[in-house]
């Protein structure tokens, strides 16, 4: 459960939002803070990317797919796990999807 603008927002026991539609950009820094992440433009680029990915394909990308898809869209310098792990140390797929208000990817490192 996250308290935001006087509203209770439901999460699962791992902190993922229960409903994708509860998310707003203002909520992202609050979820990120729980993960000890301060959002920079570089973080936002990935968070927006995974959210768009989810809205198009209705699934949260697992890490391998995230790396490949980001490489295609944002360039090879960003489509590699080293870069993504620098931004999201615990796991890019795990943390970026959580901050973007998406369900946890099925196979998640």
């Amino acid at each position: 459960m996250i308290e935001f603008n006087g509203k209770q927002i439901e999460t699962d026991h791992q902190g993922y939002l229960k409903s994708v539609s509860d998310w707003s950009p203002e909520l992202a820094p609050i979820i990120a803070a729980e993960e000890d992440i301060t959002l920079t433009d570089a973080h936002w680029e990935v968070v927006n990317f995974v959210r768009e990915f989810y809205l198009e394909f209705k699934t949260s990308p697992a890490i391998r797919v995230l790396v490949k898809a980001i490489g295609q869209k944002l360039g090879e310098d960003k489509g590699n796990s080293k870069y993504l792990y620098t931004l999201f140390p615990v796991g890019p797929a795990k943390q970026a999807t959580k901050i973007a208000g998406l369900p946890k990817p099925a196979k998640c490192i």
Partner: peptide, 14 residues
């Protein structure tokens, strides 16, 4: 029903 059909669009990425 869950829209898993949209996910077919991501097959290439997998």
């Amino acid at each position: 029903c869950k829209d898993y059909i949209s996910t077919l669009g991501a097959l290439g990425l997998y």
